[in-house]
Design a protein around this nucleic acid. Structure first.
Lengths: 361, 361
DNA sequence: CTGTTAGCGCCTTCAT
DNA sequence: ATGAAGGCGCTAACAG
C-alpha cells in the first residue's frame, strides 16, 4: 500500500529533507554516504527516504556531477554472432560497474556517420566503444579531440594508432588458416570473403587476405585472383560464391572462409554439389563462434567475448585515469582444428569436374 | 582550424547566445526550431553554433524537459538467438526515433530483481520493455504503479493482464508441434524443455507443455512423465537428456524440443546414437531462429523479430498516449515443416533421404 | 519576435 | 555536523 507515497509525483531530495527535518545538503550526504554525518541524523534521513520511497533522479545528479554514467557501444550488424559475442563480453564487465550500456547498431553508412558525429559528443555518454568500424579521416580528428574517451575494438586501420584499442592480428590469423591447409597438402586454396571495398571498409577481411597471400607466397604458390571471391556477408551469398568456385576448371581443394557464418554457406554448397567435407573439400572458417563447435568446423579462434571484455576494461581504465599515450592491446588468434579439414591426399580423384546434382536434395 | 573552439570545455548555450548577441532563450528556440524566430536572427545563431561547434547537453535538456529520451530493455540471456532477434526488432524501430536504447542483461535472479526494482524508477528512463521475464508479485505492484510505462513481451503469466504486452500463444504453438507429429503417425512423442521451475519461471516452456498435453489428450494418448525431460537451456544438456530418452525401453519416435537451440542437442544425440533423422527419429524445435533454416529443422515459428518490433511500437504508442485500458497484442505461432520430421512409417521406405547437416566423423 | 528569469533535482563549497 | 546558497545547462513562461 503506497500510503505515504505521493502518487503521480516522485519524491525529491527536498521532500526527504523536509520530512526528516534536515537540509537538502544533509540528505545528499546521506545518499552519497559521506562519513561526516551524525548517526542519529542519518537514521532519520534514511527512514524518511524509505517512507517516501525516494530515489535520486539520475539526470539531475549527472547534470550536477557532469557525468552520465553511460557508455555507448557502436557496433555494426549487432545481430551477427561475432558482434553478439563481443557485446556479451562488454556487457559482462559493465554490469559490474555503475555504468549503463547504450547500444547503437549501424547497418548503413548514414547511421555510422551519424553515430560517429553525434555519440562521442559532449556529455552524451562518458565513454565510447567502437567495434570493427573504421572512422573516416574526418571522423578521426573529431574523435581524437573529443572530450569523451574512445576505445576501438577490432579496428586495425594503420592510421588509427593514436587511439586506445584492442586488436587481434588478422594477418596472422589468415596466415595460420592457410598454413594449416598447406600443411595438409593443399595447394589449390580459395579465399571467400565479404566485399573488401564495401562501404564499411572492415579491415578484418582485408587483413586476412593479406595473411592468405603471405602464406601462399611463402609456400611458393602464386596468388590466383579467381580463387578469391567476394560477396555479401551471409550464408546464401557464400553458398552462391562457393558454387562458382567449385565449378571452376581447376577447382580448389580447400576453401578459407573469412567468417564462420560464411563457412556455413560453403558447407551448404559443398553438400548441394555432392562433395564430401572434408574428404573432397576442406573448409576452414574464422571466428570460432558458438555454432562452429556444433558444426565441427575447423576455424581460427579470436576470442570474441574476451576482446569485448578487454575493450570494456580498457575503457574503464582510461576513464579512471587517462593514459599519457594511447594504449594498444593485441590478441593473437588461434587455430582450432576440428573436422572440416583433412589431408589433400584423401581426395586423389582430382581433375574431375563437378557437375551440379539436384540441389536441395 | 579549431580556433574558435575552446578546447577542454564544451560550449554552452550561453556561449552561443553571447557570441550571437542574443539571449539564451532565442538560442533555445533556434535549437528546437521554434517558428517564432526571425530569419536573420536564426542565421546569426546558427553561425555561432557552427563556429563554436556547439551541441546541446542532453542531460541538461532532459532534466529540464523531465524526460530522458531513453528506453530500457530488460532481457534474460541476451546472447541467446531468440533474444538477439527480438532485440533486433526493438532496435530497428527505436533507431527511427530519438530514443536511445539501454540494455540490461539478466542472467541471475539477483540481477533480475535489481532491474525490476531500479530500472523502471523515476526518471531513469522513459519506458521499459521486459522480455520473457515474469515479474514476481512484489514487482507487479511496483511496476503497475510505476511512473514509467512498461511493456511486456513474451510474458504470459495470467496474473499480468493489467500490463501492456505482446504475447504469442505458446499453448497453441505446443499443440501445433505435437499435432504435426501426430499427423505423421507418431504416438510416442517426448517433450524436452528447460526447467519448468527454474528461478526465472519462464512461462513459455510451461505453456508449450500444456499444448503438448492438450494435443496428446485430444488424440487419446496418455501423458507419460518419463517422456518429459527438463534441463538447462543449452545444447549439451539437451544432448544428455536426449540420450536418456532414446535409451528408454520404449523409446520415443519423435521429440519436441522447447527451443531450436535445444533441438540441436537432440539432433546431436541422435547422431551419436546412430539414429537417422527423420527416418528413425523425428525432431521438431521451436522459435525458428536463423539457424533452423540452415539445419533444415522443422519448427514452430514465432516471428521473434516481429514480436520485438511490435513491443517497441506498442511502447512508443503508450508513451505518446497512455491507453485507458492495457493493450494486449497476440501473435500466433506457425508450423514450419522442413526436413527433420517424417511419417513414422517412413523407416521402411527409401524416399528422399536427407540428413540434417552433420559434421564429419 | 526576443531578452529575462524561474525552475528541473542534485551536489558542493562556505559558513556556522 | 549541518543548513544555506550557488551552479550544472537547458526549457518555458512572462514580459516587453
Amino acid at each position: 500500500m503506497g500510503l505515504a507515497v505521493k502518487r503521480g509525483k516522485a519524491a525529491t531530495i527536498r521532500d526527504v529533507a523536509e520530512r526528516a527535518g534536515v537540509g537538502v545538503g544533509t540528505v545528499s550526504r546521506v545518499i552519497n554516504n559521506s562519513p561526516t554525518v551524525h548517526a542519529a541524523t542519518r537514521q532519520r534521513v534514511q527512514k524518511a527516504i524509505a517512507k517516501l520511497n525516494y530515489s535520486p533522479n539520475p539526470m539531475a545528479r549527472h547534470l550536477s556531477l557532469g557525468k552520465t554514467m553511460q557508455i555507448a557501444v557502436i557496433a555494426p550488424f549487432f545481430t551477427r554472432p561475432a558482434f553478439v559475442e563481443r557485446l556479451c563480453g562488454i556487457e559482462g564487465v559493465l554490469a559490474q560497474t555503475p555504468y549503463d550500456l547504450i547500444v547503437y547498431n549501424v547497418e548503413t553508412p548514414e547511421k555510422r556517420d551519424f553515430c560517429f558525429r553525434e555519440v562521442p559528443q559532449r556529455k552524451r555518454v562518458d565513454g565510447v566503444l567502437i567495434l570493427s568500424l573504421s572512422p573516416r579521416p574526418e571522423d578521426v580528428e573529431r574523435l581524437a579531440q573529443s572530450e569523451v574517451p574512445v576505445v576501438l575494438v577490432d579496428v586495425n586501420a594503420p592510421a588509427l594508432t593514436g587511439f586506445n584499442r584492442v586488436v587481434v592480428d588478422d594477418v596472422a590469423g589468415g596466415r595460420q588458416a592457410v598454413q594449416h591447409l598447406l600443411d595438409l597438402g593443399h595447394r589449390r586454396i580459395a579465399y571467400l570473403s565479404d566485399f573488401l571495398d564495401g562501404p564499411f571498409n572492415f579491415t578484418s577481411s582485408r587483413d586476412r587476405l593479406e595473411g592468405y597471400r603471405q602464406a601462399l607466397k611463402l609456400a611458393g604458390i602464386p596468388f590466383r585472383p579467381d580463387y578469391h571471391s567476394q560477396g555479401a556477408h551471409n550464408r546464401s551469398e557464400a553458398h552462391r560464391l562457393t558454387s562458382q568456385l567449385l565449378t571452376l576448371a581447376e577447382r580448389p581443394t580447400a576453401i578459407f572462409a573469412a567468417s564462420d557464418t560464411q563457412a556455413t554457406g560453403v558447407l551448404e554448397a559443398a553438400r548441394s554439389l555432392g562433395l564430401r567435407v572434408p574428404e573432397d573439400l576442406s573448409v576452414i572458417g574464422y571466428d570460432d563462434i558458438e555454432l562452429a563447435e556444433y558444426l565441427q568446423l575447423t576455424t581460427i579462434r579470436q576470442c570474441l567475448v574476451e576482446s569485448g571484455k578487454r575493450g570494456a576494461q580498457l575503457l574503464l581504465r582510461v576513464l579512471a585515469q587517462p593514459p599519457a599515450v594511447p594504449v594498444q592491446e593485441s590478441m593473437v588468434p588461434e587455430l582450432v582444428v576440428r573436422q572440416t579439414t583433412a589431408p589433400r591426399a584423401q581426395a586423389e580423384k582430382e581433375g574431375a569436374t563437378v557437375t551440379a546434382i539436384a540441389p536441395g536434395a
